[in-house]
Every structure is written in C-alpha cells, then in structure tokens.
C-alpha cells in the first residue's frame, strides 16, 4: 500500500481482486501488452460504438479514441471493475457526448428529461409506421440488422441505457452512477425504451 494525494492506494491484488494480466503487463512495459489489450476488447468496444452512433466510420474513430484514452489513463486504472467495463464506460460517455454534439441543433430527438419529470417524458413514437410494413420487414431479413435499426430509432439516451443494460449487462445501480440520476429514473427510462423497442419489433419477434 502506498500514499497518493493523501489517500491510501491499493493494488487490485491487495484488495483480493483478480489482477488483469494484460494491464499488469502493460504497466510493466512489456512489449505488445497494449496491442493485446486492444485485440481482446476491440470487438466489444467497436460494437457498442457502432450501435450507439449508427455509423461505421464514426464508430471506428470513436473506438480509436477510446483506446487512446485508455492508453493515457491505464496508469490510473484501479481495477475496481473489469477492464472491459472500464473501457465501455469510456465509450459510453464519449458516444453520448458525440451524439449530443451532433444533434445539438436538431429538435428531432427529445432532450433527456430531468428526474422531476419522471413519468411525464415524451412517449416514443415509431417513425411513420414503415416498420410495420411487410415489405420493410422482408427487406431486413437479418435479425441483427433489424434490431440495430430499431435501436437507431431510439433517442440517444434511451439507446445508451438499453445497450448498456440489456446488451452489456450493466446493473441499474451502475447505470445510475454513470448517468448521474436516481436508480428509479433509470428503471423507468429503461422500461419505456424497452417497450418502444417491443412495439417496433413486434412484427418480427
């Protein structure tokens, strides 16, 4: 144990947590350690970015930024969560910021309602009913493509919650911490987002 900034600092091993061998190798300056980290997590990080941003090139840029940020900050990674969780947190925050910047001038997507307005937020409206069109459904034969498109139709904040919760397995409490809102608000927003997805996907599930 050592002192840093007046606070006691422990390594993951001292706390009895499993040590991420790749992170330890990186910290020891082992050649190729960071390459190995990227290889191990690139699919998950890229998939999240791609689903959040609905644009391959933008997702590629974002995934690169996520790993570069990880490279800069791995020294301060405490190992309190798995490295994959840590990387997804970075990706989640950055993707949401990117979407908000992208859509700052757009009024199409509703802003994140505050906690006081819980339950009174705008209900999701599927676009134009084309999802219910048999032709449209027939065109999207692959379920992954259909689901990705449905996710893209959610507002960014709902998409963010659904991906982190139902795809990546974050708990309500973790999401509440990341989003800076009460757990109850997270639950209700997630439920509305899932119900919106259900309405969109009813013809194919």
């Amino acid at each position: 144990m050592s002192e840093e900034g007046g606070k006691a600092v422990e390594t993951p091993a001292e706390r009895g947590r499993p040590v991420d061998l790749l992170v330890e190798a990186f910290r020891q300056g082992k050649p190729g350690a960071f390459d190995a980290i990227v290889r191990a997590h690139q699919d998950r990080v890229f998939a999240f970015c791609a689903r959040m941003l609905s644009d391959r090139e933008e997702a590629l840029d974002m995934a690169q930024d996520v790993f570069l940020s990880a490279y800069r900050n791995l020294g301060s990674f405490r190992g309190e969560a798995a490295l994959s969780t840590w990387l997804l947190r970075i990706a989640a925050n950055r993707c949401l910021n990117r979407i908000r910047q992208r859509n700052s001038a757009s009024r199409r997507e509703a802003p994140w309602p505050d906690a006081a307005a819980e339950g009174n937020g705008p209900e999701f409206q599927p676009a134009a009913g084309e999802w219910h069109s048999p032709d449209r459904v027939a065109e999207n034969r692959e379920m992954g493509a259909i689901l990705s498109e449905a996710l893209g139709r959610l507002d960014p904040d709902s998409r963010w919650l659904v991906l982190l919760s139902d795809v990546e397995g974050f708990s309500y409490e973790e999401l509440a911490t990341m989003a800076g809102m009460p757990v109850g608000t997270v639950k209700s927003r997630l439920h509305r987002a899932r119900m919106a997805l259900r309405r969109m996907l009813t013809p194919v599930v």
């Binding site: 690139q42 998939a47 995934a63 992954g144 689901l147 795809v167």
Partner: peptide, 25 residues
C-alpha cells in the same frame, strides 16, 4: 414479446471490429 426483445438484445452478436482499428490505434 418484451421478454423476446430482451432476449434478442442479449444474444445479439457483436459486429467484429474492422481490421484497421488495431493499426489506427
């Protein structure tokens, strides 16, 4: 149907990262 959607989300395979990602990093 809600359970089916959630199951679909859980089983959604991730699109593989493009090979150029590692080179760009």
């Amino acid at each position: 149907s809600l359970e089916a959607v959630r199951e679909l989300l859980r089983s959604l395979p991730p699109p593989p990262a493009p090979p150029e990602l590692l080179a760009r990093v």
